[in-house]
Design a protein around this nucleic acid. Structure first.
Lengths: 341, 341
DNA sequence: GATAAGTATGATAGCGCTGTCATATATTGC
DNA sequence: GCAATATATGACAGCGCTATCATACTTATC
């Protein structure tokens, strides 16, 4: 047994075998300039033989980078978060970074975040709604001088970068689509008021209705919390009456699914008697019946872009100040809308 | 502005202000014994004032623990992974650990894992199917001497811990449930053969059929990949014939949803003309119509337990050898089964 | 040909902890 | 009462890197 527990190779092992100083090895692995080609090749060769990789913890301790990116979400982990995760991971993988994922149980729970930030030095942090609009969280991040990119925030914050789609415009387009199919009484189910996009989507809906001369009575509006159950409840509220809407626009797909269920409860068939549209292009939307017409956000790309922005900032939050990337959305037409023309 | 960029407090800051040595502070934060109550209180008080938290990177470098737990999944991130994530995070939160989440793109992709393991020292790693049955991955983990807990693995591996439910028994019970409702021709849609549980579920189904004297013809079995589309395809295969089954047991809920869609394509109504059951109690199952009768796995608890096991092992993989936790499952009866009695 | 600027390399000092070892005092057993 | 043990504390080295500074050698500049 010559299988003596061999620990990972260290930078000095590589340096010794390659006949260079530690600093030169460090230069190679950090893509710094001022390394001659032969030394670089030699270092790479030895490193490959030893399967050497710089230690994350040592780098984090010694240097100004940590190679760790944080993503903090609130309690709920659904399809949206999964997709953000995918996008973030795609980028961290390519750049040798690691994703530290955590849940901030309660709103305004900056205490837990404070603890995390006091113990881990992040290269940057990605935030999605509703956490990205939590002022306590943002303030904590500011105090710790950490680059932050917010995905789909509700309100703009000057000193942090944003990646988003135009929710108002998307909701406007979707509403207009319903109108173009001949719908006049179009209900709207709001999103969770804690999520910034909720108001934007409502605005887009209202704008389209207004511009097309369609009244928005209270009977057409229902509150929602982005959950299936709240969608179902909204359906009852909006549909259990003689002059019920012919179409309902739900602020997300999960609620749209709830509306479909609610309509079924009332024996209203979809899409024949009621058209329903959602928002997000959630996994759900192509699985339920009828399949949902919805708005597709390029969530993965938004998340990847967020990581890119963080990496470009090179640890300096100021770099991200005022940066904003607005990506394209797209209407996805499926089977949940009936034309009235 | 006396707001000079104050860096995080360090252990020596706390030590100095508390009038003790660094080591004593270290002892307090690691819950070691042999610290007098007054010194401990003093340290805690000062630490609270300074908002001191030990640096993750420094601890990882200096000590034998890293306070990081890895969770590696294959490409697909769905509801199952989300729930595992929740369970893992619940436990890491309570123990001051951090979750490093990553995707191993391809099967047998031990190279990427190797790189990660060479750069990050993990306290332990949590694996779910199919990664937990990837021999290359397991071997890499073994070589790096990292405690591993496998959730719901297909094949047992002696030197690693397992957290699972009894898939055979669960599938048996579910099949029996269908039989008790009067079904005799019961179709089965297999799971992705790369996932170990697939075979177990098939076995449970076969056992129940056999024990009740029901034949299992080839017409009753369809392959599947755990995806919606594969479920839909299976529906076509199983249902488009005169002697079609009166019930179908899909190896997971996503495929069950696909079967519902496939039945709809063929204008076979559920549950009236066809009963369908799934497995997992996926988010989907209570959202689609009809709501799915399925098997609920305590995924969050399984994941929490996995983290517990890792922490108990205290960095020693041998501690986990042969450990196995089998948690309870439960049948969740919803609306997708029609009784034939 | 001398000065400046660019290129290439290494020596050394930490980063903020934990592990080891030494030491001192308190408590126990007989 | 004295060895044996349990309890309590600190000094100090070192984990594996990066940052800073020093140094040496090139190449350009006038």
């Amino acid at each position: 047994m010559d299988e003596i527990k061999k620990k990972n190779a260290t930078i000095s092992d590589v340096a010794r075998l390659a006949g260079v100083s530690m600093k030169t090895v460090s230069r190679v692995f950090n893509n710094e300039k001022y390394v001659s080609k032969d030394k670089k090749d030699m270092v790479l060769k030895v490193a490959a033989e030893l399967k050497y990789r710089p230690s994350l913890q040592a780098r984090g301790l010694a240097g100004s980078r940590s190679y760790m990116i944080g993503y903090f979400v609130d309690k709920s982990i659904g399809d949206y978060v999964s997709r953000v995760l995918r996008g973030v991971l795609k980028q961290t993988n390519e750049t040798g970074c690691h994703l530290v994922f955590d849940v901030l149980e309660e709103r305004g729970d900056d205490q837990k975040l404070q603890q995390i930030l006091n113990s881990v030095k992040f290269d940057g942090v990605v935030l999605t709604s509703p956490v990205c609009d939590d002022v306590a969280v943002l303030e904590a991040l500011r105090q710790h001088d950490i680059p932050v990119v917010r995905i789909g925030p509700g309100v703009d914050v000057e000193d942090m970068a944003t990646v988003e789609i135009d929710d108002v415009s998307a909701a406007y387009d979707m509403t207009k689509h319903l109108i173009e199919q001949g719908h006049k009484r179009i209900g709207f189910v709001k999103g969770d008021p804690n999520h910034g996009c909720s108001l934007d989507r409502e605005r887009g809906y209202a704008k389209a209705m207004r511009e097309h001369g369609l009244p928005i009575s209270n009977d057409l509006m229902a509150p929602g919390m982005f959950s299936f159950d709240s969608g179902r409840a909204a359906a009852t509220q909006l549909l259990d009456r003689a002059d019920r809407p012919t179409a309902i626009f739900a602020s997300n797909d999960e609620m749209a699914a709830g509306i479909l269920a609610g309509a079924r409860d009332l024996e209203i068939s979809t899409p024949n008697e009621l058209s329903v549209v959602g928002f997000d292009d959630d996994f759900l939307s192509s699985v339920i019946s009828p399949t949902l017409t919805t708005v597709k956000q390029p969530i993965e790309e938004m998340a990847s872009e967020a990581v890119n922005l963080i990496l470009e900032a090179k640890g300096n939050p100021a770099e991200l100040s005022g940066k904003k990337a607005v990506l394209d959305y797209a209407l996805v037409i499926r089977k949940s809308v009936q034309t009235l023309l």
